[in-house]
Nucleic acid binder design. Structure first.
Lengths: 153, 153
DNA sequence: CTGAATAATAGAAATTTTTTCTGTAATTAT
DNA sequence: ATAATTACAGAAAAAATTTCTATTATTCAG
């Protein structure tokens, strides 16, 4: 049921490069293809592996600006949270959105072409939401680290 | 040189599911296998596609706590930034780290098992850094949205 | 225009990979 | 102890990727 050391090794490999062949992975964990194949299918079936994706280069795509954004909602209106969650789900520029403890409500990660595009997004998509009380934006100057790889002890 | 509508369509598909076969993608963009194969290789070669990874379920792995963390460095010490960047690169718990404009210096995304594990990480890895002047942590209560998919107009 | 050069495409062949199948060894449970 | 389950290896079958060949579009210089 619980992934053993070999399973974790396989997950680690797949987190780094999902294009490794089963044969290559088998060699690295000192097994034949069959058990490696079966283990990966099992990890998928049991939900440890959620999906396989490709990661694109945002610079190449002209998405030169990354913005983190703190948002406070109007808590008087009880529909605020649902409304806001729903809206954010529809916005392709918002890559991450979570409710956080502390002095504000939401933290958003937003990707756009440039400052102008952000301003437009801000005016037309964020500030128009009735549920939004206050927004403060932080522009990313440089990305020191960015990974999707979860630590596997 | 620049990706056309078909290339963008392929990138979009691969961002959502990197396990689609060339045949399946070919059907969706109304082409045969060859051009789709060539286009994808070209997107990889030119750096639009950076890598293929699998995304794991952090809950399943017991990583139940996500923390965003603002850090201010001691700017008197000019080696501060290099030291800090280097240190963060070595920490598997830190998934993202960037330099931001505004009232603090760094924004970090950190994944750990629980509050206790975070406290341990905080004490043993963050606060010990001589370059760190101030830290404030925000615990994620709920993830409304989380995607690696960049918008492709 | 026109013809040469380049780029994009389709279809088929070759290669590689994934998946399935069969059987054996190891482990677990009763 | 023995039956049942699980993990594994090797081989066969199926499917996918990659390469090859040839044709059709497109671009560009004269």
């Amino acid at each position: 049921m619980n992934p053993d050391a070999t399973d974790r090794q396989l997950m680690k490999l797949l987190q780094q490069n999902a294009q490794l062949t089963i044969k290559e992975m088998a060699a690295r964990v000192n097994l034949s293809v069959t058990p490696v194949h079966d283990r990966i299918r099992k990890l998928e079936k049991e939900g440890y592996i959620e999906r396989y994706v490709c990661l694109l280069n945002r610079r190449k795509l002209g998405k030169n600006l990354l913005v983190y954004c703190n948002i406070t909602l109007d808590k008087q209106r009880k529909e605020s949270f649902e409304e806001f969650n729903e809206a954010v789900g529809q916005m392709p520029e918002v890559l991450e959105c979570c409710v956080v403890s502390g002095s504000f409500d939401y933290l958003l990660k937003i990707v756009v072409d440039d400052v102008e595009a952000y301003n437009q997004f801000y005016q037309q998509n964020l500030s128009v939401l009735k549920s939004v009380l206050h927004i403060s934006s932080f522009f990313v100057m440089s990305q020191v680290k960015s990974t999707t790889e979860l630590p596997l002890e």
